[in-house]
Design a protein around this nucleic acid. Structure first.
Lengths: 341, 341
DNA sequence: GTTAGCACATAATGTGGGTGAGTGCTAAAT
DNA sequence: ATTTAGCACTCACCCACATTATGTGCTAAC
């Protein structure tokens, strides 16, 4: 357990490190932050903090740099969140209203705002198909082998893919379409899946061949639907062009990390489950070369069901007290917006 | 005008530079490529070639490096294309057959193959909407303000967007849909646009309000359709991780250049017009920091109409005699494939 | 418990010499 | 009139070494 003073010093070190990016020496802390005590005292505390794993020294005559554990402690027990500036709030509502209508566009706009306001890269994962509300399905005969499935969500997102199978006439397909659209309004895709399976073994399906065919086509259609989530990363430039990126290898690592979207999705999915903003640090980034990066992320919701996530990604030394409220606010705005659709 | 021997020397320098990436000295050329003449003679020629702008020296005691102009001359007047290896041809046909069906998937596969075979990044621009053959249009009422337009091409590509306007019932929308689908089969989007405008002032449109409404909705639908071309860049890693990328600033330039997709599209569009493979070098790359990069690109066609382009992008020192046939072959395979759809 | 003072470690920076690669030029050879 | 050999010269690169600045840990005094 840290004393008040210890916390003050750790906090000061982190603040200083966040703003300069350089290892922090005892002098600076005693001069700028803790004027009542001497550098020597600060050094004693620093030695303790290092022993606890919150700081480390790049080399013996350098100052201290906070470790991911140090940041973690700071986030949990020291930092106080700042209120989101009125200006940023209004900027967000203004832009979000503008793009209203096309959900994909709205989400992209949200991400773009995050990156511009935070000066970091931002990430958004589009709604998981399972949780999306079904509006309409269409089958379009392309040729004798291929049928196009177009799935529209209530929010107006379109998912499409091609299924292969026996040749069915467009007229017949239209009948299936009508049947499915009439029967499954207002369900999520997941619910629809379940319903289809249930109905398949019902009396009706056994005797009515149209119903049977329609259900079976519906099932294959939903099976084949793309399950890799789409993810957008915007504002990579601000990370790439960050002035404290001075080693070639570091940049290379980061560039590669951004290319590896699968890994980012996996990491983000972990935060999706429970509500609120999560900060992912150090090892949680699962990526060699991303140890000194971090993600601030949150799920966003529709009717309290998590459907996707969003966040920002940048160097571990970021101003969490500003960024966390930002991400939180954006998740809320987005969730509210989705509520209505 | 260069003599045979001069060409031989320029060719040798480029070959050597392509394979090593290092400035080429007179010794190497005399030893490895032009055994009949001495280094001193080579030096004389090199001095001439430098004066002509085909070579330059990084510093006085270094060998020579070909300039973009040197490469240009080499490409036009010296290089001989190699036939595409049987192995690569069969690899291409095998993979392209696999992904047949979903055009977007096919195109992405083509690009992925380009990048894997050439060990460079590859670029593909999806078919321009204008040139795409219309299969079907659907209007889906999302709510009182928003109508979703789903446009399907004969090849099975789906384009969608939302239009805003007065509240029309789904039944009414279906009538419009049917009218448009019946009337405009087998046209390209561009032709359809023209037809719509023409029909709009016809007798029928004046007296039949359904026709009038349908035409007008069709026009707004086609107007709003997304006109920014989608572009995919694959295999960036092979460029990023290239071992002769040793300066941080260089990598940063390249990373930024890849992010700036608009510029790449603009450059590529220049090659789209006339057929065949084009090589873009130096200044043509329009990008500071991309001077020592180049693109080998070609349009691809459907019914002899250019619809998109594809190519590879990598360091200027690439083996053009292999890469040009590769890109050319891929463009041809793709064009043939699109012919059938 | 806190502080001043001091010896110590090390990164960063600069300097000078040596080496190797490759040139340009000149004068001789073909 | 070319081509070639010879040679002086330039410059990047490397290594060893010294210098400096920073900030520490430790000890002894407060």
């Amino acid at each position: 357990m840290l004393s008040i003073r210890d916390k003050g010093i750790l906090g000061a070190i982190i603040q200083e490190y966040v703003s300069t990016g350089e290892p922090v020496g005892s002098r600076i802390i005693a001069r700028k932050y803790m004027v009542t005590i001497s550098p020597a005292t600060v050094r004693n505390v620093m030695a303790d903090l290092e022993e606890m794993g919150f700081l480390y020294q790049p080399h013996v005559s350098a100052g201290r740099v906070p470790t991911p554990e140090g940041f973690r402690y700071y986030l949990n027990d020291i930092m106080e969140l700042k209120a989101l500036p009125r200006l940023e709030k209004s900027m967000i509502s203004r832009h979000m209203a503008k793009s209203l209508g096309d959900v994909r566009e709205t989400l992209r706009e949200a991400s773009s705002l995050l990156s511009r306001i935070s000066q970091n890269a931002s990430i958004i994962i589009m709604p998981k198909l399972d949780t999306v509300f079904f509006k309409r399905i269409d089958f379009i005969r392309l040729d004798e082998n291929r049928t196009l499935v177009v799935l529209v969500s209530k929010a107006g997102m379109v998912y499409n893919h091609i299924v292969y199978g026996e040749d069915v006439s467009q007229d017949q397909l239209n009948k299936y379409t009508n049947f499915l659209n009439d029967s499954y309004a207002d369900l999520t895709i997941q619910e629809m899946r379940d319903m289809l399976i249930k109905e398949m073994s019902s009396e009706r399906a056994k005797f009515d061949s149209l119903v049977h065919q329609a259900l079976s086509l519906g099932m294959t259609a939903l099976e084949g639907v793309e399950d890799r989530p789409d993810i957008y990363i915007q504002g990579k430039e601000s990370v790439y062009n960050s002035p404290d990126l001075v080693k070639l290898e570091r940049l290379r690592d980061i560039v590669n990390a951004f290319e590896d979207k699968g890994r980012i999705v996996r990491i983000l999915n972990r935060v999706l489950d429970d509500p609120g903003v999560k900060v992912l640090l150090g090892e949680e980034m699962e990526h060699i070369g991303m140890d000194d990066f971090s993600m601030v992320a949150s799920g966003y919701y529709r009717r309290n069901v998590p459907v996707g996530s969003l966040g920002i990604i940048g160097p571990i030394r970021m101003d969490y007290s500003r960024v966390i409220p930002l991400v939180g606010y954006m998740a809320k705005v987005l969730s509210d917006l989705l509520e209505d659709l």
